[in-house]
Design a protein around this nucleic acid. Structure first.
Lengths: 177, 177
DNA sequence: GGAAAGAACTTAACATGTTAATCATCTCCC
DNA sequence: GGGAGATGATTAACATGTTAAGTTCTTTCC
């Protein structure tokens, strides 16, 4: 159901050029693309506000996660804020430099670092939150609360469905370890 | 640096420290986060295969988009592959250097560039496609074809719902530009 | 017909994503 | 005890995301 449209789009020249090519799904039906587009549509709403407060999306995620706990280890924070270690390291360095967070070594393990939000950080959060919540409310209003919950549910199931799917290495690259 | 006695500011954390803070949605219920996690779960499946062929996700998106047309202008390609101009510029420079694509100036407008996939690019696509399709099939099998279609539908509606929502600038920052 | 405004990239600058390598510490086990 | 290996965190290197500024060419319009 995907291929036929191409002739319509490119009627005249090499009308069979595309037809000879590897058959694949239409681009718009790609799941990663759909998720990307949807996420971008949502984030586009939040970015200006965050930017006005000197925060990036990821910095906001971290501060927000820190607001929910008293303190947290870096590794756990990475898991909660869904950031990779290297990204988190850089951002924490920056946030600490801006005095929005505090960092100290864990008591019983010198390798671990424990992070917490500072008073200044809390203040920033409180300044951003109203706008952020208003935007979220508007999104909910437009899309529908029920539908939003349903979407959350479906996304969660998708994630769970793929959890055990060990990254299928390419056949030509030999077996796994 | 400028490290104050924050123990004074946030003294003595009890178990209810978090409860006193700004009320916000749980992190896991954040829509951007759900979309990000779902997308990452999907992309995690594809990345190893692409990597084995020397392609990043975005490079693959571009080549894939080029496969569907005979040639296309850069701006239109950016729209279709959902990439920003600067990213696309860099990637096209790289892909052209690897002879995976071809670029020429438009006939009637010297500003515009027209891009097309090369024979070498097509060959690469054909080498990656089988694995890629197999992964997609497995995802579909696990999640369910019907559910997948429904998810696509809901994501599309979400995107459309937010389309007209003019990026709500922060109230405290007047629109000056 | 030429200056000004607009359009299509491109470059620049900074922040993050991604993988690999490094560094320090810790655990286990001989 | 002490060394091999595991673990937590950071750094390195490269690619992309994001916004702003710059370049080149076109169109508009006086």
């Amino acid at each position: 159901m995907a291929r036929k449209k191409l002739d319509e789009i490119r009627p005249e020249q090499g009308d069979d050029a595309a037809a000879r090519r590897t058959p694949m799904r239409e681009f718009s039906r790609s799941l990663p693309m759909s998720l990307l587009r949807a996420r971008e549509a949502v984030m586009r709403q939040f970015r200006p506000s965050l930017r006005n407060h000197g925060l990036t999306e990821q910095q906001w995620r971290i501060l927000r996660a820190l607001t929910a706990v008293d303190e947290i280890e870096v590794t756990e924070l990475a898991r909660v804020a869904f950031l990779l270690g290297p990204s988190l390291s850089r951002i924490l360095r920056d946030l600490e430099g801006r005095a929005l967070i505090e960092r100290k070594a864990a008591e019983n393990d010198a390798r671990r670092a424990v992070v917490s939000i500072s008073a200044k950080g809390l203040k920033l959060i409180e300044a951003v939150a109203p706008t952020s919540e208003a935007i979220y409310a508007e999104i909910t209003r437009r899309y529908g609360a029920r539908k939003l919950a349903e979407l959350h549910e479906m996304l969660g199931v998708l994630e769970a469905s793929l959890a055990g799917m060990g990254s299928a290495e390419d056949a030509e690259v030999e077996a796994d370890e």
